[in-house]
Computed example of a mutant assay.
Amino acid sequence: MDSQVTRWQRQVVRTRRLIVEPLLAHHADELIDLLDERVNRYFPSQDVPSSQAALREQFAEMERAANSRDDGRRFHPFVVRTAVGQTCIGRLEVLMHDRDAEIAFVFVPNAWGKGYASEAVKAIINHFELAGVQRFWACVTRGNAPSLRLCERLGFALAEVPQDLELWTYDDGDIVLTFESAGNL
């Protein structure tokens, strides 16, 4: 599966309204609105970049991690663009553990309420199902009702923290959700 997954890592995923492409460090300059306090209110403060330079470094670190993981997991960061105008509106991350994958997402405020996050997450789930992922996980900070509703709309269900799988995106107290793949959404 690993060579198959590597092939998928660099593919661009398209929907009617969106383009989901591999994240590169320079995308930080297009996603400066991720520094908006409304975006970061649910993240632990140590995970929130404090400046454009820190955001660039975070993106550079993600780009390096996508190309150099040696712990058996595969990290796939993506940016989300509108198909019309090519405007960067968000970021998705997929961390694969064999046939399981964690998915995380964050979008700029101007993209909220337009269905972009649902559309992008559906597309990336469909994409990784083709690479053999059978179960998806999402960890949502308590109080983040919009992200929780999005996950529930996509068919994710509340779950316990798995004992046989270390969720990289889990912080103590997060709500854990899972989605069992049964074909395309």
Rank of each mutant, 00 (worst) to 15 (best):
H26D: 02
R38N: 05
P109N: 04
I103H: 13
E119C: 10
D100M: 08
F43W: 03
G85W: 11
R149Y: 09
E37A: 11
T82Y: 04
V20F: 03
D2T: 11
M1C: 10
Q52F: 00
A66V: 14
V161S: 13
G90R: 07
A66G: 13
A54P: 00
Q9Y: 14
Q46F: 10
A104S: 05
H127C: 07
A54Q: 05
F107V: 01
R38D: 05
S118K: 13
G132I: 14
S3G: 00
S118C: 10
L92N: 06
Q163E: 07
D100R: 15
D174M: 06
V176I: 15
N67K: 11
P49E: 02
E93W: 09
A145L: 13
L34M: 01
H127T: 07
A28Q: 02
R10Y: 07
A145I: 15
R99N: 06
V133A: 09
G143V: 10
P49A: 05
P146N: 11
G132C: 12
P44N: 05
H26T: 00
D29M: 07
G132K: 09
R99E: 05
Q134R: 15
R99Y: 14
E166L: 14
S118L: 13
M62I: 06
G90E: 08
I19S: 07
N126H: 11
Y116F: 13
A159D: 01
G173W: 12
T87C: 11
L165F: 07
E30F: 12
E152G: 05
D70E: 08
T169C: 04
K114Q: 11
F59A: 05
P162N: 05
V39Q: 01
D172P: 02
D71T: 14
D36L: 05
Q134A: 14
V133T: 15
R81S: 09
E102R: 14
E37Y: 01
A83D: 02
